[in-house]
Design a protein around this nucleic acid. Structure first.
Length: 466
RNA sequence: GGAGAAAUGGCAGAGUGGUCGAAUGCGGCGGUCUUGAAAACCGUUGUCCGCUUAUCGGCGGACCGGGGGUUCGAAUCCCUCUUUCUCCGCCA
């Protein structure tokens, strides 16, 4: 299952990464009813904190996060943990030696000496038991603290509190001048019979729109167009499951924090994916890739399911915010030294898409207050929906550095040193459909109907919706 | 859903209480040979943590699906969970 640039390994044992995670010292209690132990959440590596404490503290201020006390506490516990392990390993070593000796004595018939040895190890075992208990507890404490630290932002991330402080990088495309009777997309949908929100209401509930006729065809055209473009750009297509288990949801960070955002299948303990990122990234859990196999470039189209709990009001009209939508995602696994170049490349790819769709767009670099917990650097793409006179976010492209990879145990083997190193992971939407459709409908409306962008006509089979 | 079998290193596959991190084969890497390649032969080959080390490395510990137990000692015995396979039932 491989092609030139991309390698996909079967996940042989989904639990093995957990096993290793335990060995490497981080371990967490798990939710009731969950039989597999699970390492939670992505995080910075201890090694990074040991060596770059000041850098981490400084940069995290951009995210409005004061990490100093936390990191100090972690480093102290880390030192303590290591001292315990050293002691414990020494005692284990002694126990191992003694056990071997006893075996030898038994075999050579020196039964009395063997029995004496047997009695001797009693206290040793007690001590070991105690040390191991302490070790586990300390590891838990360290982990609990570690997961509270967000990813360290890239130096380029601007300061700021919220969306208003994001920095616009560039814009493109022309703002359309609409005719006098122009309508917002939800009314256009009804007028042309291509999109119905009421029907979805009947079938399921609010936020589950129904596309029909040319509207349905447009959705399918966009999906195929995006996938074709991704493939041309060297991405390898995946069709993943739309439901994932808890371990996967933990591994990419949807659990435990964003549990309320996902739909659940209680009978199976599954989650409907909120993005293809979850199954696609999990394909690479606990892997050691040869450096020559990098970069891995994967793409996937999936429906996405989001509860969007707690969001309601004016901004959520029509397609602006829905519970089920279609999205093509691109995912990359890179060597650390290449990851920011890869991020640029992804941005250019997404930009080419909105350009080809003839949509006015802007690219913004998220500020420290708006960037996600796990991201090091994020760019958002927004397109302008002319009837609503609103910028709508259609893509978010992020570099997670090694933060996700650390949790995923996703490594590669360095060609020169032959050592394993954490890879960098990146992902981005390319693109999310509903808001693209909203902007297309609104911006391309004319007195005669809605014009289809040139590039899509081969996919839709028609040039106008009327 | 019912009955049975199984889970060991990159893969295949030995191993039923100590000398087993684990035979053997394949694959991978290095070398000999060759104009080059193949074949043949020789050597090497897991991950993680800790201690030590300028570096190469050395030493200790853990890992044979997950968790727990018995034992001086567990891949090997016991309990439990998960997964896979075979047969039956159901099914697009």
């Amino acid at each position: 299952m491989r092609n030139q640039n991309n390698v996909f390994y079967r996940i042989v044992d989904p639990d093995s990464w957990l096993r290793r995670a335990k060995v490497s010292g981080f371990f967490l209690s798990f939710p009731a009813g969950l039989h597999q132990k699970i390492t939670l959440t992505p995080m910075l590596t201890l090694q990074y904190l040991r060596n770059h404490k000041n850098e981490a503290v400084e940069r995290l201020k951009i995210k409005n996060f004061d990490a100093e006390t936390l990191i100090n506490e972690i480093l102290e516990l880390d030192q303590y943990r290591r001292s315990i392990q050293t002691e414990n390993d020494g005692k284990l070593s002694l126990l191992n030696k003694t056990s071997k000796e006893i075996g030898r004595l038994f075999r050579t018939g020196k039964k009395d000496e063997a029995e004496a040895g047997r009695r001797q190890v009693g206290t040793l075992k007690d001590e070991i038991k105690q040390l191991q208990q302490e070790l586990l507890e300390t590891e838990d404490k360290i982990h609990d603290l570690l997961i509270r630290i967000p990813n360290v932002p890239h130096p380029d991330v601007p300061e700021g509190k919220g969306a208003e402080d994001n920095r616009e990088i560039r814009r493109g495309g022309d703002l359309p001048s609409l005719h006098g009777n122009s309508l917002p997309h939800w009314e256009l949908g009804t007028r042309y019979g291509i999109l119905d929100f009421e029907l979805g209401n009947t079938l399921t509930g609010a936020g589950f729109p129904v596309f029909m006729g040319k509207g349905a065809r447009l959705v399918r055209a966009l999906i195929t167009f995006f996938l074709d473009e991704a493939e041309k750009a060297g991405y390898y297509e995946i069709i993943p499951p739309l439901m994932v288990n808890e371990a996967s949801a933990y591994a990419t960070g949807q659990l435990p924090d964003k549990e309320g955002q996902m739909y659940t299948i209680p009978s199976e303990n599954f989650y409907l994916i909120p993005t293809a990122e979850v199954p696609v990234t999990n394909l690479y859990r606990d892997q050691i890739l040869e450096e020559t196999k990098l970069p891995v470039k994967a793409t996937a189209y999936t429906p996405c399911f989001r509860r969007e709990a707690g969001s309601y009001g004016k901004d959520v009209r029509g397609l602006n915010r829905v519970h089920q939508f279609d999205k093509v995602e691109i995912v990359r696994i890179e060597k650390p030294e290449n990851s920011y170049a890869a991020l640029e490349e992804m941005i250019n790819h997404v930009e080419s898409l909105v350009r080809k769709l003839e949509l006015p767009y802007r690219i913004v670099k998220l500020c420290g207050g708006d960037i996600s917990f796990t991201s090091a650097l994020t760019y958002d793409f927004e397109v302008f929906a002319a009837a609503q006179k609103k910028w709508l976010e259609v893509s978010s492209v992020s570099n997670f550095g090694s933060y996700q990879a650390n949790r995923l145990k996703l490594r590669f083997r360095d060609n020169n040193s032959r050592k394993t190193r954490l890879a960098h992971t990146l992902n981005g939407s390319a693109l999310a459909l509903p808001r693209i459709i909203a902007a297309l409908l609104e911006n391309k409306q004319t007195e005669k109907g809605i014009r289809i962008p040139e590039v899509l006509i081969p996919y839709t089979g028609f040039a106008i919706i009327d």
